[in-house]
């Protein structure tokens, strides 16, 4: 349904939770093969939900916290603000708006049968 990040041919789709496990406009963290992935459910102004996934690790604070940040928009980009030092990460690309050198990985997400799937 909602794409984000690149899906490499070798990518595996993994189901991480049901959509009702994520309240609209919040994030959760999924543990996939020991990797922490922040998954977000963002409601647009028309009431449609979009899903995004990026690393949960915040390179600025070295803590695993991005799923716990506030979601919002900056210009046309949908972002999450790290709860520790408030840098913004683009939910679609993983880019850190304040310092591109500290960007994180973004993952493709789709929703199937009320389940959220991530390509890892």
């Amino acid at each position: 349904m909602d794409g984000a990040g690149a899906v490499s041919p070798a990518a595996q789709w993994v189901s991480v939770c049901r959509i009702e496990d994520i309240w609209p406009d919040t994030g959760v963290c999924a543990l996939v093969d020991g990797r922490q992935i922040a998954v977000f459910r963002v409601r647009d102004r028309d009431g449609h939900d979009r899903y995004h996934a990026i690393d949960n690790h915040d390179p600025q604070s070295q803590a695993n916290v991005l799923s716990r940040g506030l979601i919002g928009s900056i210009g046309a980009r949908t972002v999450v603000a790290s709860p520790i030092y408030k840098q913004h990460y683009d939910l679609t690309t993983g880019e850190c708006l304040e310092d591109a050198a500290h960007s994180v990985r973004a993952y493709a997400v789709r929703v199937d049968d009320d389940h959220v799937w991530i390509a890892v």
């Binding site: 803590a63 716990r68 520790i84």
Partner: peptide, 18 residues
């Protein structure tokens, strides 16, 4: 809930290690 900073969202103060 989606309006709250992490601190208010989890009703505690977030520390440097999360």
């Amino acid at each position: 809930a989606p309006l709250q900073d992490s601190n208010d969202y989890f009703l505690g103060n977030i520390q440097k290690d999360g």
